[in-house]
């Protein structure tokens, strides 16, 4: 079946958890490419044969062979065959691209979450992928450094920045005065405050404060 091998290749990656990678399956990769070559060969032969037949028909009917060469006019069955080969090639190509892209993205993701490649992943990479990782690593380091083109901030420290550094809280019970980075705040029941979200978190856990939703609108 066309595309089956490539599909199974992709399945290999998809079945592994996101922070891991299976070995780069060079063998399967090559055999998919072979399949594409085979399909391409078939495609060209079918096309040429069909053209040949068409030309002969034209001659038998006493038409002008030059005129026939201008365009291809095959039968319906021939057209279908061509289409099947063509889409099979496209599909295989796409599956291979996805395979490579998914692996590259996981490698990138590992750079963001783990900073370096874990040993068991590193062993599974192809030489090209290892090179990709090194170059990506260099680029990101350059971007995070201060100076020239860098932002001067380690962006990998918190990959999902909070929506808002501040949150609105409702005070559920009387509590002592607390000094936040924004100043001293007296926490008395029924008051509302707008405070730095990382600092209120322990108090929310204690049940002193309650987060007030309502981000929509005003």
């Amino acid at each position: 079946m066309f595309g089956k091998q490539a599909y199974e290749l992709l399945q290999e990656v998809a079945s592994v958890p996101a922070d891991n990678l299976p070995p780069f399956n060079e063998e399967a990769f090559r055999s998919v490419i072979d399949e594409v070559h085979m399909q391409h060969e078939r495609l060209t032969t079918v096309y040429n044969e069909s053209r040949e037949r068409h030309r002969q028909r034209q001659e038998e009917e006493g038409g002008d062979p030059e005129e026939a060469a201008a365009g291809w006019q095959g039968t319906e069955a021939e057209a279908t065959e061509l289409m099947v080969y063509h889409s099979a090639i496209l599909r295989n190509k796409r599956l291979l691209f996805t395979y490579v892209k998914e692996r590259a993205e996981r490698i990138q993701e590992l750079r963001w979450t783990h900073r370096t490649l874990p040993e068991h992943v590193k062993a599974n990479l192809s030489p090209l992928e290892q090179q990709y990782f090194r170059q990506y690593d260099r680029l990101l380091n350059k971007y995070c450094r201060s100076g020239g083109q860098g932002v001067g901030l380690d962006l990998t420290a918190d990959p999902t920045p909070p929506d808002d550094p501040y949150v609105q809280v409702r005070v559920l019970r009387d509590y002592a005065d607390v000094v936040f980075s924004s100043g001293k705040v007296s926490l008395r029941r029924g008051k509302s405050h707008w405070l730095p979200s990382d600092e209120v978190h322990p108090l929310v856990m204690d049940g002193v404060l309650e987060l007030v939703g309502g981000t929509g609108g005003s």
Binding site: Y166, Q168, G183, G190, K191, S192, W194, L195, P196, S218
Partner: peptide, 17 residues
């Protein structure tokens, strides 16, 4: 509510009672 929204837009820490 209007005033609160203004303060939030400008990142002014605030509270009410």
């Amino acid at each position: 509510r209007i005033l609160e929204r203004l303060f939030k837009n400008e990142r002014v820490p605030h509270g009410w009672m």
